[in-house]
């Protein structure tokens, strides 16, 4: 028997679940250093020596354990960037802005972050992190507001 075309095609709904993510020691130490000291810590692989920022508790290159954290940056080099023209819900900055992969001085990997939509943000450019004021930091990657071209004046300074 052929059915008639349905009178009801969609039903709206949502999947929602709140989490309390365990950071673990390495990620927790990295995030706390952003919040408390305005510093970026990298994980040092005890086997291959890769210095990774942001750090994980194991080396993403060779799989060995990472037990040592060391400060890198604050200055870094832009390895790639991409321009976001339109705002979206949950965006880390007001559009237009740029996503950047930044390799902080002393690190072997890149940190994914954002930057102003500024022509100074290009591959090979030196940038530095601009931290949020201490009272606005919450122990998150967004405690760094964004990376600005080195030499640029901080907003409001």
């Amino acid at each position: 028997m052929a059915l008639k075309p349905p009178e009801l095609t969609y039903m709206e709904g949502e999947s929602r679940c709140d989490y309390n993510w365990t950071t673990g020691e390495v990620v927790g130490t990295f995030l706390a250093a952003l919040r408390d000291h305005g510093k970026m810590l990298a994980g040092v692989c005890e086997s291959c020596g890769q210095v990774a920022v942001p750090p994980t508790s194991y080396c993403e290159s060779c799989g060995s354990e990472v037990s040592d954290l060391r400060e890198v940056g604050p200055r870094g080099v832009v390895m790639s960037w991409a321009r976001v023209a339109d705002d979206f819900e949950g965006a880390p900055a007001e559009a237009p802005f740029r996503y950047v992969l930044v390799r902080p001085a002393g690190a072997d990997t890149e940190l994914l972050h954002v930057a102003p939509d500024d022509d100074g943000i290009r591959i090979g450019a030196t940038v530095r992190p601009e931290f949020r004021p201490r009272e606005q930091r919450g122990g998150a990657i967004t405690d760094i507001r964004w990376f600005v071209p080195d030499g640029a004046e901080s907003e409001g300074s």
């Binding site: 995030l31 790639s80 991409a82 965006a91 880390p92 996503y99 972050h113 954002v114 990657i141």
Partner: peptide, 25 residues
């Protein structure tokens, strides 16, 4: 991951855009 990428709102298109720029450059 909830710590490093998700707070940055990085979706598949943005990640691919970073890849495209790096490759083309």
């Amino acid at each position: 991951d909830p710590f490093y990428l998700r707070p940055m709102g990085l979706d598949a298109t943005a990640a691919a855009a970073l890849q495209a720029r790096a490759y083309m450059h």
